[in-house]
């Protein structure tokens, strides 16, 4: 008879990488649901469509790289990338936006760097930033949430399909689109503030119409991940706290030109970024101390870019910039090993 000759340990926790990815995808469900409720079926269609594109792209590149295809696709990381990207782009983006973004994310940002585990940058955010820079118009065109006064209802399923796959004259939707609250804030700082603030909470004007619900939904999904021990609390907490504190500071100094902290925390892609994007393990710092620094710096950069930068939202840029710093943070935040007086830091001298 034959038995297995293998190194200890012989038992393992049943959590697998595939399960990790799956749980993260589950975690996005509340957010996805709210987005669908508020903005119609567009996001859901993008998620499904994007996943298909991502799997196809991944398979193709794996084939070209001569790697086992099924093995890598099964880990679910490509689908997760597609889901995150689809959640970040406007629900009515034409199909080619999704295709371009995902191809870039999967092929260039992930596989060309060596595939899962070797990519220095968050692929979904690379795709997002590429789109934002290349197609600023499409990427900032959001239809208003159906909670907004005067907006009848979000597009129906067939309308969404038509919007995405382009059989509709897109100028039609231009009539009903409007800038996102963050965008509004940036463009009309001062003038429209009162208007933004006048609406009631239920109608969602803490952070712009509908957006606080989106963020709260992502927060719920994120808490699920923390509870399942898929992610630790460090990065989201550090990121949201630093963003909140910074926004609060400037709000106290000059409430007229700076938005209030709640607006920042529940506005734009803050929660999606905090729980789902910044926590992408491959590109983040791993030690607890490192995670705190990493998260806090992302929060800081988000605020800086939102307040003084050229783009309305900043999660993607902030995350990518910190991806760049993650290895350095890692080097200087090693935990102290048992039996050592000091923690090691820096790289080995050779």
């Amino acid at each position: 008879m034959s038995v297995l000759h293998v190194t200890s340990p012989h038992v393992r926790k049943p959590m697998t990488t595939n399960a990790v990815m799956r749980h993260v995808i589950y975690g996005t469900i509340p957010g996805l649901a709210v987005l669908t409720l508020l903005f119609g079926w567009g996001t859901l269609i993008n998620v499904v469509f994007g996943s298909l594109v991502a799997v196809a792209a991944e398979a193709l590149v794996l084939r070209l790289r001569n790697r086992p295809i099924l093995f890598s696709i099964k880990d679910g990381s490509a689908i997760l990338t597609a889901v995150l990207l689809a959640l970040a782009i406007p629900p009515t983006s034409p199909w080619w936006i999704t295709v371009v973004g995902i191809l870039f994310a999967i092929v260039i940002a992930k596989q060309l760097y060596g595939g899962l585990g070797s990519n220095p940058f968050n692929p979904a955010m690379i795709g997002y930033v590429l789109l934002l820079i290349s197609f600023p118009l499409e990427m900032t065109t959001w239809i208003p949430a159906n909670l907004t006064e005067g907006v009848a209802a979000s597009p129906s399923f067939s309308q969404s399909l038509a919007l995405i796959f382009g059989s509709v004259d897109r100028t039609v939707i231009d009539g009903i689109t409007m800038a996102t609250p963050l965008d509004t804030f940036k463009t009309y700082a001062g003038n429209d503030l009162d208007m933004l603030r006048s609406a009631s909470v239920l109608q969602g004007s803490i952070a712009g119409v509908g957006w606080e619900w989106v963020n709260i939904a992502f927060l719920v999904g994120g808490l699920y991940l923390v509870a399942r021990k898929i992610i630790t609390w460090h990065i989201p907490v550090a990121m949201v706290t630093s963003l909140f504190l910074l926004a609060g500071l400037f709000y106290i100094i000059d409430p007229d030109s700076y938005a209030d902290p709640i607006f920042h925390v529940l506005g734009g892609g803050t929660m999606l970024g905090a729980f789902f994007i910044a926590t992408d393990p491959v590109t983040a710092a791993t030690s607890n101390k490192g995670k705190l620094i990493y998260g806090a710096l992302i929060g800081l950069l988000i605020y800086v870019i939102r307040a003084w930068g050229g783009y309305p939202d900043a999660v993607a840029f902030a995350v990518l910039l910190l991806n760049l710093c993650a290895p350095t943070i890692e080097y200087y935040t090693q935990p102290r090993a048992y039996g050592h007086k000091k923690a090691n830091s820096g790289i080995a001298k050779s």
Binding site: M1, S2, V3, L4, V6, T7, R67, P68, F71
Partner: peptide, 20 residues
């Protein structure tokens, strides 16, 4: 110890146990 075979491969090897 030899280096494990790497990604995509099941760690360890099936060996016949002698003298069972």
């Amino acid at each position: 110890w030899p280096q494990p075979d790497g990604v995509g491969i099941t760690p360890g090897q099936l060996i016949p146990v002698r003298n069972i």
